[in-house]
Design a protein around this nucleic acid. Sequence first.
DNA 1: CTGAAAGCGCTTACAG
DNA 2: CTGAAAGCGCTTACAG
Lengths: 334, 334
Amino acid sequence: MAGVSLATVDRVLNARQGVRQKTINKVQAAISELGYVRDTAAANLARNRTYKFLFVLPDWKGQFFKELRRSIDEVAESARYDRTEVETLLVPNHDHTFLASRVGGLTSRDIDGVAIMANETPVVRDAIAGLHARGVPVVSLVSDQPNSVRDHFVGIDNTSAGRTAGMLMGRFLGDRSGKVIVAVSSKQSRDMLERRIGFDEILRKHFPKIQALPSIEGREDPAHTEQVLRRSLDAYPDVVGVYSAGASVVGVAAAVMGHDSPIRPIFIDHELSDASADFLQRGVLDAVITQNTGHIARSALRVLRARCDNTPVIRSQEYIRIDIVIRENLPKQE
Amino acid sequence: MAGVSLATVDRVLNARQGVRQKTINKVQAAISELGYVRDTAAANLARNRTYKFLFVLPDWKGQFFKELRRSIDEVAESARYDRTEVETLLVPNHDHTFLASRVGGLTSRDIDGVAIMANETPVVRDAIAGLHARGVPVVSLVSDQPNSVRDHFVGIDNTSAGRTAGMLMGRFLGDRSGKVIVAVSSKQSRDMLERRIGFDEILRKHFPKIQALPSIEGREDPAHTEQVLRRSLDAYPDVVGVYSAGASVVGVAAAVMGHDSPIRPIFIDHELSDASADFLQRGVLDAVITQNTGHIARSALRVLRARCDNTPVIRSQEYIRIDIVIRENLPKQE
DNA sequence: CTGAAAGCGCTTACAG
DNA sequence: CTGAAAGCGCTTACAG
């Protein structure tokens, strides 16, 4: 229709150099007249393009990580049918040197994109900067790296998540007043800090009769978590609520169930898992604030892919929602 | 590797007739040894296969439908790059004869799959049966057609959604007792009935001090909804809550805001929209139970596609969650 | 029961 | 600056 060869159409489509403006115009006129849309599958086939992405995750044993890794494995499996290979690298607990040595040196010849979940440290930031400098797209996963040059963050706004927890805590307590125990895995973690900030903000503003206690650390260890929680429950007789912003749900639940009090405290947790679903069912846990791991894994892949292909990202599709789960809206089938 | 031609490999891959068992074995041995996965994109290209799907929706003007239609349009747009064409047919308000005449006669030569959203009636059921008989996959959307031969339902369990609303209503009311107004668009609608059943069940079981009034009908008309709601609010001085299981949020909110009462009633609504998000922001509305229209549209397409290709559906990916939205976890960007 | 050849819509050297 | 031809991984008639 434009009176040119396929090769020239290809040049125009891909905005390659060396085509006369007049020819470009002819081709583009034909394109819009025909309503032509290029078949990306055929294009990828001809290019013989394959994608290779790396997911870097901490080597944690929590339930949420099991879920996240399962979702990533699922995504990796279905990606195989789409000319893309997904590898996962588990970083030994907080060993950022390991991360830097294994990831920091990758170039665009080794890998087409990296998704990183790690606490924000200078070492991680440098690794991301290195990847970026060598043209490798990087997305941060679950925990943001706001001060790095990552291309995109796949996860929730933890301050809002904390606010959500605070509002539910306040409303579920109704007229009751007293203290709320706040448990985190580590006080260093940015995610925990942000959740805590949001939580406190809502209590201060809307529920001044409720007092949140200083955070206690569970150190990602169920037994230790249970122990420090028991101690806290014993120390304050007027505890009316427990907010676990990331501590082991099994440990916290054990302490709550083992504690003898006239009215069970309202218990709110983060990250839905088999364990927390069970506690919701049994009425030990009142609400879970969570994020969908399947959505996170798929979104990370779509964003990395879009960066490689230089195609736009649909923002609304990649927005990760803050999910509220109570017993009544617990997902039925899994 | 198997010592056969491409054509024979193709026969084995697609389980076509006329290959000796011995040859099949050789090919399959090679496949598993090589870890071969077929490139579906190349296969579709060679087949020159395109897909044509039809979305049938009621011609309603509610905010939720605007959202749903926007999501379907988005999906249709991105489907164009994937050799699939998506058309939308709007059925004039409850005109099931129109639906039957336009959809009932389609065959697998006309269309590769149909997604239907409609109230459950014999006419609709017959149309679905006809499509099914002629080999056209059908999914029901948002409103289920449990007594039809639809292949799949894309949407939430409305009884659980009603239970979720009931639990939030009860908990948000704390110790307050009194009456709750329940507003629906129509008492005929199965979705509304199911929500009501779930809502009542939870109140009866956990909050006996709260009494839900008989449903009032808003007829999908904001002005009429506001009017009947005002009447109800005036009639019962001890109203402590309003549950809108599908009535116009604008109408209900207008009545609630216009009513003079010492304590504002707890107001819970279904289906997030720009309007309900605004009411949440302003503190008029306390919670919205909703379902993600983007997920619904994409899921419908994936399921129809899987039916055509005879590939399995990943259940967990297609599960539509019952979302709870309060002011604090309202999606930020759109 | 099996294979050779053409073709799906694109891209990539290469030639001019 | 432009085009002819080969090729990406598969499927589809057709021939034997």
